[in-house]
Nucleic acid binder design. Structure first.
Lengths: 159, 159
DNA sequence: CATGAATATTTCAGGCTTGAAGGACCTGCG
DNA sequence: CGCAGGTCCTTCAAGCCTGAAATATTCATG
């Protein structure tokens, strides 16, 4: 911990801080725009969209805890979002045969149809918002971003 | 709007979508790590830190609405965060002489001291979390990120 | 089989966030 | 002056989010 006890204050440290602040700014800006469009166009939200996207990729359904893992979101949070999606009829819960604790969550047919529409539109939005990025820049950025991915701490879970 | 009515589905569109998802993933990962450390180490939060940072850059104080502009956060939200910072004694509200509607918000001396400590540690955290990024990569990424900054829509506010 | 540990989920309090509505105040114009 | 329209801020309902505690249920071990 001794490294945290004195000021850092190198040029590189400042550069990294600037990079992080920029990252935050850009991401929040884009996210705000997408959230707003999701709200106006579909009366929905990004978290709901995220849950539906995860379920769309798993047609056999996911358990609540699996959903929580995939989305990297707390267990209790998933409960609330799924609750609302159930009320809206886009998602259904089912019992897992061998385990009375677990729930299997799936898209309903209506949810599947709604998601297809949302996903198409969402991709178009992103495509337009990132319109200044060509393929080469995209791959360059994608690569660079990989470098600052927070790795799970040693001893943590693996994929 | 006609462009949104049919599937996009070009390779470039997929690349941009992947880039956006990566951006979101990386940012959320780092943010979660910083939030957790802020909570454990300082019993505080990133939004509170953001407010204090803005106030630290404006020793003469900021109005609530100016704070809301700087942080790009809704007015009502700022009210709540500042309320809590006031309770904690890190921030104080003052009347603006000529205008009984407005409030001038400032760091207290305690807030200023606390912020200095938090800012030093925060920078060290970011420096460590982005430890794989050297100066050249940082500037490359910073530049690339600038390209996908959501520009305010035409007719919107300017800086 | 019992029972203690582990697993799956929900509930809860506290905080952040938004958009919309409301109240107080200011300003400019007739 | 009076008052219409704007500005500044707060309040509110609804939703997202977390970490921690509570509830069920399953599993492993003796």
């Amino acid at each position: 911990m001794t490294v945290l006890d004195r000021p850092v204050d190198t040029a590189l440290s400042k550069d990294r801080l600037r990079l992080w602040l920029k990252l935050l700014k850009v991401t929040r800006g884009l996210e705000a725009e997408l959230r707003e469009r999701m709200r106006v166009e579909f009366g929905s939200t990004l978290p709901r969209f995220d849950v539906m996207a995860a379920l769309a990729r798993h047609p056999d359904g996911l358990r609540m805890s699996a959903l929580s893992d995939v989305l990297r979101v707390s267990n209790g949070n998933v409960t609330g979002i799924v609750d609302r999606l159930v009320v809206e009829g886009q998602v259904a819960r089912a019992q897992v045969p061998g385990d009375r604790r677990a729930q299997l969550v799936r898209l309903t047919p209506e949810g599947r149809a709604e998601f297809a529409q949302m996903a198409r539109t969402h991709e178009a939005w992103v495509n337009a918002l990132l319109g200044d990025v060509d393929a080469a820049q995209a791959s360059l950025l994608l690569d660079g971003l990989g470098r600052l991915e927070a790795r799970p701490e040693p001893g943590g879970e693996r994929e």
